[in-house]
């Protein structure tokens, strides 16, 4: 049972790695759903001892936003504009994997040892979260598609939640609700913004968005 958080964090981490190499847009959205589910499960597990009605409501709100609303908007974006998830990356496939390996190695190296003090009892979970955070950041750096970058940012948010859980920095349900609401708004705004971008440029590849059209 004590391995459950690590297993859940591992699942989330693996989905982030898989997103890097996934080619199909729908698959990426589904991987994000799995990742979010793992993070929500981790959140629920960490609050099992002091479960309150407000906390349950908060978790349900997070479930609604991350498992239903966000994927709904992402899938709708793909369906409406028939935009394919841009699989183009700045680095080639093998190079992407090499960089990923380096990031993971770096995350577990002595460089991040000073951070161990913030989670003395959950170091594996902490380093997994750091690795997830950097890998998610790498999605934003390496992918050329705006949709991939959006998922990269959502994955970063998930990684930050994992890191906070590992460090024992859980916040009050009210604050978590606020963050979730924030996320909901962000997804809505990003959806509208990407729709407008697609209408203007006919693509969501950031390399094509060089000049603003009249």
């Amino acid at each position: 049972m004590t391995e459950l958080p690590i297993i859940l964090a591992g699942i989330a981490f693996m989905t982030i790695v898989l997103i890097q190499i996934a080619r199909k847009s729908m698959l990426v959205v589904e991987l994000f759903v799995v990742q979010s589910a793992a993070v929500i499960a981790l959140l629920a597990w960490s609050s099992r001892d002091h479960a309150t009605l407000t906390l349950v409501a908060t978790i349900l709100a997070i479930v609604a936003v991350k498992l239903f609303v966000a994927p709904f908007f992402l899938k709708r974006l793909i369906a409406t504009h028939a935009s394919r998830f841009s699989s183009s990356t700045y680095l080639s496939g093998p190079n992407t994997l090499i960089v990923l390996a380096l990031i993971i190695a770096l995350s577990s190296s002595y460089l991040f040892k000073p951070l161990a003090v913030i989670a003395p009892g959950a170091q594996t979970l902490l380093f997994l979260s750091i690795a997830s955070l950097f890998c998610a950041l790498f999605i934003v750096i390496n992918r050329q598609g705006a949709l991939s970058q959006m998922i990269g940012i959502l994955s970063m948010e998930n990684s930050i939640v994992m890191m906070a859980l590992a460090a024992g920095l859980e916040q009050s349900p009210a604050l978590q609700l606020g963050i979730t609401f924030d996320l909901l708004l962000w997804v809505c705004v990003a959806y509208i913004f990407l729709s407008l971008l697609y209408r203007q440029f006919g693509s969501l590849d950031v390399t094509q968005l060089r000049r603003l059209k009249d």
Binding site: L106, Y110, F134, I141, R143
Partner: peptide
Amino acid sequence: VNAYVLYMFMTLLALFVVIS
């Protein structure tokens, strides 16, 4: 945007190196 995020990432790593 990718490049800018890369700069942030590199800065973050550099800060960790400096602290370590």
